[in-house]
Design a protein around this nucleic acid. Structure first.
Lengths: 153, 153
DNA sequence: CTCCTTTGATTGAACTCTCAACAGAAAACT
DNA sequence: AGTTTTCTGTTGAGAGTTCAATCAAAGGAG
């Protein structure tokens, strides 16, 4: 096994800035949501994805997919959201292994209440900082980096 | 308080791709390091930053700064790394509140052993996916997004 | 049909991180 | 000097995540 070449100067800088930016953005969003809505960003994403799904319902495996979380992580998260009354588990009609996560009315209300503050945080942390044309660049880069990456284990 | 406008279509897409990309990259790096080197990415960063500092030593507050972690998080991390014998705590010579984190020889060896695998993972997750010119875009975006964001609490 | 593999989802323990509370030391006032 | 305020860093508890183990059901292969 040969040792791969190190990052050149531009790559090095890009990499360091990227991990700092990603960490700070996630931190800012987590803190805002935890403070104002009593949930971490990961849980907000669960509610958000469910709210857009037909019947506000998604199979656990699909919900894990769209929220970029492992099955275990999602299962724990849904359990926690169930305790809050924001999500309910239903049995899958045809596949008896499957479980369905359903967003409750209370869950939808909690999401609706949290959304404006979260949106403001996203703007403050990201889009308010970007110049014209940079949104398109972010889109292109995000697309490239998101696709093909192995999903969570 | 007025509800701010929602994201337009391009922003929406950029945002979703970005959070998926960031999550998958972090997950991939965490899993590789945990599996091959027995430490999470955050701990690797602590060792890496220390290894570049003069005397392989940094004050806790500065180390927290460069690793994008809260004082509490770093304190726990250093405690854990101390148990492994990879980092040692020294007293600050002039400021008696201050604590210095020092990378031990064993810690340096652990970092050196982990580095090639980590580098390969970074390449696989990020730079191998980018086309020419996109590294520069990533650098510009990362810089914009990293600066000005409030440091961790 | 039976065996075997794969898929979907959950569980508990170990680990990391966050938050709030705390304490020691330095800096700034009065 | 004496008091308050700020800065540094640690601690413990609680919340979230990971990992490995587990189980049930579906999907082949012989």
């Amino acid at each position: 096994m040969e040792s791969p070449r190190w990052l050149d100067d531009e790559e090095q800088q890009a990499w360091r800035h990227f991990i700092v930016a990603a960490a700070r953005i996630e931190d800012a969003l987590d803190r805002q949501l935890q403070r104002d809505a009593g949930m971490p960003h990961a849980y907000y994403q669960v509610l958000a994805m469910l709210s857009e799904a037909p019947g506000r319902t998604l199979r656990m495996s699909q919900l894990a997919e769209v929220t970029t979380s492992s099955p275990s992580r999602l299962s724990h998260a849904v359990s926690r959201l169930e305790e809050k009354g924001w999500v309910r588990r239903d049995k899958h009609p045809t596949d008896r292994r499957g479980a369905l996560a359903v967003l409750t009315e209370e869950g939808y209300a909690a999401l609706a209440a949290a959304a404006p503050g979260h949106l403001a945080a996203v703007r403050a942390a990201v889009f308010d900082r970007l110049g014209p044309g940079q949104v398109a660049q972010l889109l292109a880069l995000g697309k490239r980096l998101a696709e093909g990456c192995p999903p969570a284990g």
